[in-house]
């Protein structure tokens, strides 16, 4: 009798479980069948009417029934969960091509970008990065660099003066002198900095611009070392395939002096609009430290030799990033700056 009841309960429950479509219904079934007032529980309550010796057998039957129902519930629940998950996943499909949400980061100035490349190359070779004042004594800007009084380069039309002795530096080369006064060789340094020339603002001129000065002093420094160093620099800055050319030139504070051209990094030297058909682009001035400059700053030219170089930061930035108007560098239009 009980056995029949049980199998009926199980089969009915199974039927309900199989046909249910959500987990709440499963829960109702669980309560209705297995709960405190559930069908199975009421059968257990009727155990007291079962003869003592049959009770274990009946108990086992009830347990089997419970297990069967629980298994069915569990199985169905898993199936429902899987179904629900797959529904949710398909419901939650997004259009991955919609625009990204990004933190809007700021951008470096092209000068800074160029300088950080240059700085990286030279600090990697053991150069120290130093600086000097923008407002400088005539002595450091001219005289100690072998540009004596009366030299045309000192003419007012090129140099901004504060008074007879104090001026806005026209070159970073004065830092060479300050460093030689400050420390003993060996010295390897670069000195980026702001310089000033009395040029009206136009597409290729600015009264304010930046240079990077470099200087090496040690025993036995040769012109060939200068060539090696700067060729290495050019290859790192513009690419391994870059070729360099040193042309004789004149600067009062170096002797011999040279200008360095690099093969055009746009056309590789074939000649293009960018290098004006030359295949070469002038990049920097350099030379062996003039013995007079060394001795004026307290370095014995019979014991030490050295080389120095200077390049225009804006020139590098304009070339590297193909900027065709220098004025853009100082306008600070965010549409320009955000490209770097």
């Amino acid at each position: 009798m009980i056995k029949d009841d049980l199998s009926k309960i199980v089969s009915q429950a199974r039927e309900k479980i199989l046909s249910s479509v959500d987990s709440n219904v499963l829960n109702d079934i669980r309560v209705a069948v297995l709960g405190k007032k559930g069908e199975l529980t009421s059968i257990l309550k009727g155990m007291k009417d079962v003869p003592e010796d049959e009770r274990p057998k009946v108990g086992a039957l009830v347990n089997d029934a419970r297990k069967a129902i629980e298994d069915a519930l569990c199985e169905k629940r898993k199936a429902l969960e899987a179904l629900e998950l797959s529904r949710r996943l398909s419901r939650e499909k997004i259009d991955v091509t919609l625009p990204a949400r990004r933190l809007r980061k700021g951008h470096p100035h092209p000068n800074t970008l160029a300088l950080s490349e240059i700085r990286k190359i030279f600090t990697g070779m053991g150069y120290e990065v130093v600086d000097g004042p923008d407002i400088e004594l005539d002595y450091y800007n001219f005289e100690a660099l072998n540009i004596p009084k009366g030299h045309p380069a000192k003419d007012e039309q090129d140099t901004f003066y504060i008074n007879k002795e104090i001026l806005l530096r026209t070159q970073t080369s004065g830092v060479q002198v300050r460093q030689m006064e400050k420390r003993k060789p060996p010295i390897r340094m670069i000195a980026p900095g702001r310089v000033f020339r009395a040029d009206e603002v136009d597409a290729t001129h600015s009264p304010v611009f930046h240079q990077v000065e470099g200087m090496v002093i040690d025993k036995g420094i040769r012109f060939s070392d200068l060539k090696g160093t700067l060729e290495g620099f050019a290859k790192k800055l513009f690419g391994e395939e870059t070729r360099v050319k040193f042309r004789p030139h004149h600067f009062p504070f170096t002797e011999p002096s040279a200008e360095m051209d690099v093969s055009c990094f746009k056309c590789g030297g074939k000649g293009c609009r960018f290098c004006k058909g030359e295949g070469w682009i002038e990049i920097l001035g350099c030379g062996m430290m003039h013995p007079k400059v060394l001795s004026m700053s307290g370095v014995d030219p019979d014991e030490y030799t050295g080389f120095a170089f200077g390049l225009g930061l804006e020139r590098i930035a304009l070339l590297k990033y193909e900027i065709d108007d220098m004025r853009l560098l100082y306008e600070n239009d965010t549409r320009f700056l955000s490209q770097f």
Binding site: R119, Y127, E128, P186, R188, G220, F223, D225, K227, E231
Partner: peptide, 19 residues
């Protein structure tokens, strides 16, 4: 100038770096 050799700096290595 173009025939002068290209050599690497000799001498002590300096640590370098930024301020």
């Amino acid at each position: 100038y173009d025939r002068i050799p290209v050599t690497a700096l000799k001498g002590v290595t300096l640590s370098g770096g930024i301020s």
